Amino acid sequence: MTEHTQPERSLVLVKPDGYQRGLTGEVLRRIEAKGYTLVALAVTDARPDQLADHYAEHEGKPFYEPLVEFMSSGRLAAAVIEGHGCIPGFRALAGATDPTAALPGTIRGDLGRDWGGSVQQNIVHGSDSTESAAREIDIWFPDLG
């Protein structure tokens, strides 16, 4: 007998740099082409409380303030995706955090670059674990809980 597990969910953010450059559709196209399902989607301005909660583990680090400033610099697209293995799958699709080092074929490798700013502008965020995904989805989509 085959064991069926529930598909997992992940939060994906198209950060202000990606949204401003008109890359939201391309990011969503790649997610859907990979076979993941969009469960929720919103275009929004990040609220200070959302960013404080989202980046709580980084508070006090030197990059925290520039990161929060960047993430509040413009609109972003927030999505919840679903599918078996979607957390590691999306992170592989996104590519290395540093767009200069990200491999061709990944979102960051194909679409990102170093802009010389004080914080890495790398187009997307994806949850890194099921625990992070649950916490982050609750921050950005509290009605899904």
Rank of each mutant, 00 (worst) to 15 (best):
Y64V: 08
R30C: 09
Q50S: 02
G25P: 08
R47A: 15
V68S: 03
Y36G: 05
H54E: 03
R75W: 09
E65Y: 00
E32Y: 00
A40Q: 08
A56I: 11
F70G: 14
P62L: 12
L93R: 02
Y36S: 03
I81N: 06
D45K: 15
R75S: 11
H84L: 11
G74I: 00
G85H: 02
E65P: 04
G83E: 02
D53M: 14
K61E: 14
D49Y: 01
L93P: 09
E26S: 12
L51I: 15
F63W: 14
A33T: 13
H58K: 03
P62I: 08
V39H: 08
P48C: 09
R29N: 15
R91G: 01
Y64H: 07
L76H: 09
L93E: 06
A40Y: 06
E65A: 10
G60M: 06
E69K: 14
A52N: 07
G25Q: 11
F90Q: 03
E32P: 01
G74S: 01
S73M: 10
G25I: 10
L41E: 08
Q50P: 08
A78Q: 08
Y36T: 00
Y36H: 03
R29L: 15
V27G: 06
G89Y: 01
E32G: 02
Y55F: 13
V68R: 14
H84A: 13
R30Q: 14
H84M: 00
L28P: 03
E65S: 05
L51D: 13
T44C: 13
F70Y: 15
L28M: 12
P66W: 00
L51G: 12
D53W: 07
E65N: 05
I81W: 07
A46C: 05
L38D: 05
A77P: 00
E57N: 00
G25Y: 07
V80S: 04
Y64M: 07
E82W: 11
G25V: 13
R91S: 09
E32S: 04
L28T: 02
T24W: 11
Q20E: 03
A79P: 04
G83C: 02
G83Q: 05
L76F: 10
P88G: 07
P88E: 04
I87Q: 12
G74K: 02
R21M: 11
A33K: 13
E69F: 07
C86N: 11
